[in-house]
Amino acid sequence: MALERKPVASLWIGERLQYLNQLCLASHLRHGHPVTLYCTEEVTNAPEGVDVRPASEIMDIPMDIVEQTSASFLSNVFRYKMIRATGAIWIDCDAFCHKPFPDDWEWIFAGHGMRGALNCGVVGLPRHCELMDRLLDFYENLPEVPPWWNKNQRKKITRQEDDLPHAVRIYKTERTAFGPQAFTYFAQQTGDSDRAMTPDVLYPVPFQLNDIFYDPHGRVEGWFTDDTVSVHLYTNGTKPWWRKNVPLENSYVWRMCREVGIDPAQALE
C-alpha cells in the first residue's frame, strides 16, 4: 500500500523490539501511514518499511535518567518535541492501528480507563499551539512540584533522596506525573480538554482489563465502536508471561499477528 496518509512516529529505548511492538508499528504501515521509529540504539528487528532514525534528531536522551526511571519516562518529553519538529502523530509502540487516522484530524487525544482521565499514548496536536507551549515549558523548566499536586503528593516528594535529579524525584513520587497527569492538567488550563475524543476512539478496552487481549475466549471487539481507530494494548501493564510466550491461538493478539504478518516466536522478551 502507498504510504500517503498522515505520518506517525514513536520512540524506542533499547536494542530489540518485542513482537507486540512490531505488530503495532506494522499495523500503521498496513493502513498507509508512514512510520518513523526514533531509537537510542541500533534496532535491527523493526518491521520492513519502518523508517528507523536516531532519537538525537529530536533530542538527546539522558540514559542516566532513564536508568533511574523507566524506558518510557522521557518519551513524555520526546513526543511533544517530535510533534513540534515534524508534525507527525505520536503513537506509543503498543498502539495498534485498527483503522487509518482521518486526514483532517488535527487534535488527537482521548480519555482512557475507568476514570476517564486524558491519556497521551496517541497524540496529535498542531505544531504551534498554547497546549504545546505549556507542555514544553513545563518539561524544560520543571517547577519545584507540579502545580496540580495535592498536599499528600507535595509531602511525598520531600521524602525522596535529595541527591536525585529533580525529574527523578518527581517520577518516584508520581510515575504518571510527566505523562497523563501533565497532559490532563495543561489541556484543562488551555481549554483544549473539550477537544478530547471519547475513550472508544483510541483506548476502547480499559487498562484494567488488558489481559483480555491474550484470552482466546475474550470478546475484545465487543468494546469497539464504529469510531474506534486505535487499540491500546498496554504493554506496561501486561503480565510478564505474555511477553515471554507466544499468544494463545484465537486470542486478539494472535489473530492480529496473523493478519498483519508478525511471527511472535521471533521476538519474545
Rank of each mutant, 00 (worst) to 15 (best):
L3Q: 15
E4G: 04
K6A: 11
K6S: 11
V8N: 01
S10L: 03
L11K: 00
L11F: 05
I13H: 05
G14N: 07
R16N: 08
L20I: 14
Q22A: 08
H28N: 04
H28E: 00
R30Q: 15
H33I: 03
T36D: 10
Y38M: 06
C39D: 11
T44I: 07
T44W: 03
A46T: 10
E48S: 08
G49C: 04
G49M: 04
V52N: 02
V52I: 13
R53M: 07
R53G: 06
P54A: 03
S56W: 02
S56Q: 09
I58S: 10
I58R: 04
M59T: 08
M63L: 15
D64T: 15
V66N: 06
V66L: 09
T69D: 10
A71N: 09
S72Q: 02
S72M: 04
F73R: 01
S75K: 00
V77D: 06
F78I: 02
F78M: 01
I83C: 07
I83L: 10
A85H: 04
A88N: 13
A88P: 01
I89C: 03
W90Q: 00
W90G: 00
D92W: 00
C93A: 14
A95N: 00
A95P: 00
F96H: 00
F96I: 00
F96L: 03
K99V: 01
F101L: 15
D104A: 14
W107V: 14
W107T: 12
F109C: 07
A110D: 08
A110T: 07
G111T: 10
G113Q: 05
M114A: 15
M114P: 05
R115L: 14
C120W: 00
G124N: 06
L125Y: 06
P126I: 06
C129V: 07
L131S: 05
L131W: 11
L135M: 15
L136M: 08
D137Y: 13
D137F: 10
F138V: 04
Y139P: 03
Y139F: 14
N141R: 15
P143N: 10
E144Q: 13
V145F: 11
Q153A: 13
R154Y: 01
K156H: 06
K156F: 06
I157G: 02
T158M: 12
R159D: 01
R159V: 02
L164M: 12
V168H: 13
I170E: 11
K172D: 06
T173I: 10
T176N: 12
T176D: 10
P180G: 15
F183T: 03
F186G: 13
Q188G: 13
Q188P: 02
Q189C: 14
Q189T: 13
Q189V: 15
G191N: 10
D192S: 13
M197N: 05
D200P: 02
L202Y: 00
P204W: 08
P204N: 13
V205A: 07
P206V: 05
F207V: 01
N210P: 05
D211V: 04
F213Q: 04
D215L: 11
E221A: 12
G222Q: 09
D226S: 14
D227W: 03
D227G: 05
V229C: 10
H232Q: 02
L233I: 12
N236E: 07
N236M: 04
W241T: 08
R243A: 12
K244Y: 05
V246Y: 05
P247V: 04
L248G: 01
L248I: 13
L248H: 12
V253R: 09
W254T: 09
M256A: 10
C257I: 08
G261E: 09
P264G: 07
P264Y: 03
